[in-house]
Simulated scan of single mutants.
Amino acid sequence: MIAQEMMTTDVIKIESTASIGEAVKLLRRHTISGLPVVDKNGRLIGAITGGDVLRAFQQRAHKVYHSLIGSTHVMTDNAVFDRDRDQLLALPVQKMMSRGAVTVGPETPIGEITDIMLRQNVRRVFVCERDRLLGVITRNDIVRYLVSHIEP
């Protein structure tokens, strides 16, 4: 089996100029953990995940305290979290996305895609041809495929 035979072609994506809030709504509405980010011409330029959003919020909300004996304590400041939430959600996706999303071609064998996912510790790969997004394959897609071929 190759990528074009397994990929989801109805890909939910977001433009780089859309807000983080819009991305979060799409992630929630479609119960997915990541989105491809495209430019105004529809070319893949990156990805944004729920993890990216959580990391950004957490980095802003952490306060670091140093004691006199040198140990460091990290505490989450909920007031900072609440104050910065709206600001962060209004930022454009391009400020928080990961550049260089992992891509494969439509003819890439599923075994190779599995190796890429495990080696690069990613949950999804985007199937592209000349920067044009054709589809997406997730870890769950591969697991479902494997399970469907197990003999009872």
Rank of each mutant, 00 (worst) to 15 (best):
M1F: 13
Q4H: 12
M7G: 10
T9H: 11
V11Q: 13
I14V: 13
I20E: 04
E22K: 13
A23F: 05
L27S: 03
H30P: 01
H30D: 09
L35F: 05
P36Y: 04
V37F: 05
V37C: 05
N41F: 09
G46Q: 03
I48K: 04
G51L: 11
D52Q: 01
L54H: 07
Q58A: 13
R60W: 00
K63G: 00
V64P: 02
H66Y: 06
S67W: 00
L68P: 07
L68S: 04
S71R: 07
T72Q: 07
T72G: 03
V74I: 12
M75H: 08
T76M: 01
T76Q: 00
V80I: 04
V80L: 10
D82Q: 10
R83P: 05
L88N: 01
L89W: 00
A90H: 10
L91S: 04
K95I: 01
K95T: 12
M96W: 02
M97N: 08
R99Q: 06
A101G: 13
T103K: 07
V104C: 11
P109E: 15
P109G: 11
I110Q: 08
G111H: 14
E112S: 14
I113L: 10
I113Y: 10
I113F: 12
D115H: 13
I116G: 08
I116C: 13
Q120K: 15
V122R: 03
R124V: 08
E129G: 09
E129A: 09
L134M: 14
G135D: 14
G135I: 11
I137V: 11
T138M: 03
T138K: 01
I142H: 02
R144W: 03
V147I: 15
V147Q: 15
V147C: 14
V147L: 15
S148V: 04
P152V: 03
